[in-house]
Design a protein around this nucleic acid. Structure first.
Lengths: 193, 193
DNA sequence: GTCTATACTGTGATAGAC
DNA sequence: GTCTATCACAGTATAGAC
């Protein structure tokens, strides 16, 4: 193994995989250390606590999410802006599956942690931006279903499809963008029912 | 307090609320006992183990889900069947928020438990039924996004909207059915892109 | 920088008094 | 049926050798 790979990076990656698969609360420092090939104490040398390890593991992805959602909220409400947002969002999901998986599945029980709160604030900002104007409830739901559906379809996909039909990421990307575009791009002109 | 309410029911309800809010792993028998006004040992008298408590808490909802999905898979692929399925599914979500919340947020880390596996089997059966025929990937995604989106929108709604704008359940029901119908009812005639 | 050894806390679960 | 007392164990975290 090349000495280029640093222990802290290996530990961070092992932790991310553990958090995503068995959950944060159920992950022990011992398991993480074992998976990375280090001792439990080495983990606590590189990261002051289990929470610090979570911060390091999913923090970067949360950073991306913040800028992604922030840009969309700040930007115009034009159809073109929506289109690029959809693409960015899908790419974000595909490029940060483990972190998204962790946040989606464990976020509720991790309220109060700085990383989690940052993500929640960003998401709430998006929700407010969608709901503030007098948009009909169905429109708000369409947005929620689209983003939550895309997110959780990938998360559930990781859960169910892992062993079997391994679809190519490129096809998934295209199909997801297609469905989200259907839902969101022509939303203004849709009937309420 | 009327002696009509049984201790086991109170404990089951308290456990469900704990599991849904702080998660299964993070919930302690002590907390559950405190919330219900009993001692930790009383919990273990009524339920042999923490897992048995989970079974009792979300089992009934999983039963409903099994029949719901089973009926749809067994039934025809007609538009009318889809319409009634959408309505039943939304009603199921609205009527079992805490159980759904628990399964969605904790299910991944609880693999192997009988209740969880029953639900996973039912969901996989639905997924197979949708994917078995040569449906295009976008159509499969549309189904996934619709059901996962509806599910997680309500779950996230419980997370974010609890304190503020308390939308009436009736309106949510109508809006959700509307969005799901848009996505699923005319799916056969949609273009791939 | 990585390890061993250990302290301390809280957990799920059991036994037995009432 | 509910309680107190106790168990064995796993968890995070600390101290210090090398």
């Amino acid at each position: 193994m090349p000495s280029r790979v640093r222990a802290s990076d290996e530990l961070r990656q092992a932790a991310l995989e553990q958090f995503a698969t068995v959950g944060f609360a159920a992950s022990s420092l011992q398991q993480i250390a074992d998976h990375a090939g280090y001792s439990k104490s080495s983990v606590l040398y590189h990261y002051a606590s289990k929470e610090a390890l979570l911060e390091a593991a999913i923090g970067p992805a949360i950073d991306l999410l913040e800028t992604l959602l922030g840009d969309f909220v700040a930007g115009g409400r034009t159809g073109a802006a929506r289109a690029t947002f959809i693409e960015s969002f899908v790419d974000f999901l595909l490029g940060n599956r483990l972190a998204v998986h962790t946040f989606v599945n464990q976020g509720q029980s991790l309220r109060g942690l700085p990383v989690i709160e940052r993500a929640n604030t960003a998401i709430r900002g998006l929700a407010d931006s969608i709901c503030d104007d007098d948009a009909p409830l169905a429109e708000q739901m369409r947005f929620g279903v689209a983003l939550a559906g895309a997110t959780y379809t990938l998360v559930a996909g990781a859960t169910f499809l892992d062993d079997e039909q391994k679809v190519a990421d490129g096809d998934v990307r295209e199909a997801l963008i297609s469905v989200l575009s259907e839902l969101l791009l022509t939303a203004d002109s849709r009937p309420t029912r």
